[in-house]
Design a protein around this nucleic acid. Structure first.
Length: 420
DNA sequence: AATCCACAGGAAGATTAGGATA
DNA sequence: TATCCTAATCTTCCTGTGGATT
């Protein structure tokens, strides 16, 4: 009897969880037909030998931008065309400098060429085996790229995801890449820029704006009905028949629709709900499991956000959750004075200025961790009040993490303020 | 209407951290 | 490794403000 025998071999819930991950690109993208048509029309141009236009895609997270881009690249590669199409998808989140992007693209093209013509002929091209991760001037990279492209005529379509993450706004790279076509005679290069922020285009240099922003395709958020369709489609592939209680997908869709129609969130919810059901040894995913899943996801999202906050911002937040115990509203002054006392009690801390704490509060508000409003109390002055904590359990999360700090007692009441 | 509280929130200079460069 | 550069963060200083009180 092995330890592993005690675990069930087969899931009672899932048939294949893979289809619920966001990395999976489905064969059929629901409710994005219009966008697909628009994009396909544009991308088809270079196949006929026409000058390619560049496209900018934007929309919030989980609106299908990446999935559609990947889908189109895949379809294009399969299309029967006079010139071979090579689709390259690159996420700029980690590859976020001009050099790194160019290096990745060039490496990809070199590998592709080597595969096509075989290592022996590749030797004769005089092209480098690989490009170094650092060290070359950008021009040399571009030259290598052009030479690689020209060796064998092809249409290259480059999708740059999260393009707004590129240092310096990514304009240089876009400009350089789009200018590349003038050096190419046998090949063509076409760009798809993918961005989360709608104002990305506004931040661009005018010359890039005109070349990249020729055509823009906007991905609106999904509504609850659309999300439900998408979920049901995926659920069919990934859950056992009858493993979902009535209304489970609808609830996941509704919850995700509240959060700006994010399909990723919806899929996460459904998957986590399935995992919850599995853990509990149930054979069906119930509504309560979705609630639990939603709760878990919220908690882990909150944990993630908390981790990224600077120490003093967390201290301010710790102060807020401590003072907030009795449920009252807190003024900026109260928060700041308590924060100062925390710093006095812990010699290794020295308090930041009130202005900075104000910025912290604004940011916490923006992150949706607290809600603040500016109120005026006449002679009592004008102040920012912290009204609510959006996630009450944050208290435990925080105090657990911040236990190394000694907290001063909460004595600052209305009475104390009178005396002061 | 004038006053005044307790800040709001903008501008600009100072500090710091992290990364590039020699 | 030391030094330099840059972008992000923080501080200092400032003027502005809603509305109960005078």
């Amino acid at each position: 009897m092995s330890l592993f025998d005690s675990f069930p071999r087969e899931s009672q819930i899932f048939t294949c969880k893979e289809y619920l991950r966001h990395s999976y690109t489905p064969d059929k993208l629901l409710h994005r037909e219009e966008q697909i048509q628009q994009l396909a029309k544009i991308l088809a141009a270079p196949l006929r030998g026409e000058a390619p236009s560049n496209v900018l895609i934007y929309g919030k997270t989980g609106t299908g931008k990446t999935a559609v881009a990947r889908f189109l690249l895949r379809e294009l590669e399969l299309a029967r065309t006079p010139l071979r199409v090579v689709g390259i998808y690159l996420n700029c989140e980690n590859t976020n400098t001009q050099y790194r992007i160019l290096a990745k693209l060039t490496t990809f093209l070199l590998e592709d060429l080597k595969q096509r013509i075989g290592p022996f002929e590749f030797q004769t091209t005089g092209l480098p085996e690989r490009v170094p991760n650092t060290g070359w001037p950008t021009d040399q990279l571009l030259d290598t790229m052009v030479a690689t492209l020209e060796y064998e005529g092809k249409v290259v379509i480059v999708a740059l995801d999260e393009i707004d993450r590129v240092a310096g706004g990514g304009e240089d790279i876009l400009y350089k890449l789009s200018r590349l076509n003038s050096d190419l005679s046998r090949s063509r290069i076409s760009l798809i820029g993918i961005s989360n922020s709608a104002n990305f285009l506004e931040l661009l240099d005018p010359r890039v704006k005109s070349s990249l922003g020729e055509i823009q395709v906007v991905f609106p958020p999904y509504n609850a009905t659309q999300l439900k369709d998408i979920l049901e489609e995926r659920a069919r592939m990934s859950f056992r028949e009858g493993a979902l209680e009535e209304g489970v997908t609808a609830l996941c869709a509704a919850l995700a629709a509240q959060e700006h129609g994010d399909a990723r969130r919806a899929l996460d919810l459904l998957r986590t709900a399935g995992e919850v059901a599995e853990e509990k040894g149930c054979t069906r995913v119930e509504i309560s499991h979705v609630r639990e899943a939603s709760h878990r996801l919220q908690r882990s999202a909150m944990e993630e956000v908390l981790q990224t906050l600077p120490l003093h911002q967390k201290l301010v937040l710790l102060g807020i959750v401590t003072l907030k115990q009795n449920g009252c509203r807190l003024s900026f002054g109260e928060i700041y004075r308590y924060y100062q006392r925390i710093c006095e009690r812990n010699p290794e801390l020295s308090a930041v200025s009130p202005r900075t704490v104000k910025n912290y509060l604004d940011e916490l508000d923006m992150l949706g961790i607290i809600t603040t409003t500016v109120v005026s109390k006449g002679r009592g002055g004008r102040t920012t009040e912290v009204r609510d904590l959006t996630y009450p359990e944050m208290r435990e999360l925080l105090s657990e993490e911040m236990s190394r700090f000694e907290l001063p007692p909460v004595v600052e009441s209305k009475l104390c303020r009178f005396l002061a």
